[in-house]
Amino acid sequence: MLELLDWLDRPSVLHGLHLVGSLTLFVIGLYGLLGKRHLLKILMSLALMELAVNLLFIALATTSGETAPILSDGLTAFTGMADPVPQALILTAIVIGMAVLALGVSLAIRYHRLSASADIRALADAQD
């Protein structure tokens, strides 16, 4: 049992598991993006893909045994800590994703108001 836990703690195994999980989420989002016709569902799939990438970045930035890159009571030096750069980048990516999602949803609402439909096929057919 302990050997199994040690094996799971190895960086390559841990990163591999994170990779499988977040890529599965990403592909689910891709499927929704290509296969769904409702605009809100498409936007949701986009958000899901984005979250999968965020998850991947955060997961790969750390290995077992590393702490969050923040000094607190017990910690006095910046050693043995997770990489802060991906965390900082993902922090900004989350905010941008929120803003882009809000913009997309408001475009979808506006389109629904004008045409009383939320179907992307009708949007592709619209000429005027």
């Binding site: 890159p69 923040i70 607190s72 910046f78 800590m81 990489d83 802060p84 900082a88 922090l91």
Partner: peptide
């Protein structure tokens, strides 16, 4: 060895206890 490790070793110069904040 990544960029983040280099920044972590330098991070004390910013006097910020949160390394993510000093990167951002």
């Amino acid at each position: 060895a990544t960029v983040g490790d280099a920044l972590l070793t330098r991070n004390a110069e910013t006097a910020s206890a949160n390394a993510v904040t000093s990167v951002v």
